[in-house]
């Protein structure tokens, strides 16, 4: 983020809290506890996943969304892959391991708001298939802490991908 120079990094206690949160949240997705994961989002969540249309290096990067959801539409996505009777893409479930690293965290303008960036690598192996999908990218989150803990208010996952390698994306990152 370009403005990161002006923002102040969180202190070590907050950093550990945020890191733990990001790990625990990804563990929920790897365990397919999608509804529990959904409960960690604010009611006004804005959740986006983008890919790239390749341009010459001297041009600006052309990013565009392949997922752009509010709470209502994201809930449908979550409900669909949560229910074995309502999904073919995730039944049998894709075997996944999500790696989160390079976490940077800053205090947002309001109290209790954190802006974080992190790297994500999603290893996804469709059951019964020798193929493995790898989805890597940078995430930009806005997290909010209140008395009940941390919630995600905004997430943008900027995948380093132009063509999705393994068909369509039914998973969350």
């Amino acid at each position: 983020m370009s403005e990161s120079a002006e923002r102040s990094p969180v202190d070590i206690d907050d950093y550990v809290t945020i890191q733990r949160f990001l790990y625990a949240e990804m563990a929920l997705l790897d365990r397919r506890a999608y509804q529990e994961w959904f409960a960690l989002l604010t009611d006004d969540i804005h959740y986006r996943v983008t890919t790239v249309s390749a341009r010459p290096a001297q041009d600006e990067t052309s990013r565009f969304a392949i997922i752009d959801e509010d709470a209502q539409t994201l809930k449908m996505r979550v409900d669909q892959i949560s229910d074995p009777n309502l999904t073919h893409a995730e039944n049998p479930p894709t075997l996944t391991q999500r790696l989160v690293s390079n976490v940077e965290a800053y205090y947002g303008e309001r109290n209790g708001v954190f802006e974080t960036t992190s790297s994500i690598l999603l290893y996804a192996n469709r059951s019964g298939s020798p193929k493995t999908g790898l989805y890597g990218g940078e995430r930009q989150d806005v997290l909010i802490r209140n008395s009940s803990g941390i919630k995600i208010a905004e997430r943008t996952v900027n995948l380093a991908q132009t063509i999705l390698p393994d068909s369509t994306l039914s998973l969350l990152l």
Binding site: V49, T51, I66, I67, M76, R77, Q80, T87, H88, A89, L164, T168, L169, S170
Partner: peptide, 9 residues
């Protein structure tokens, strides 16, 4: 689309 709820199935 590339992550469409119809397309994925």
């Amino acid at each position: 689309g590339a992550a469409g709820v119809f397309e994925q199935d």
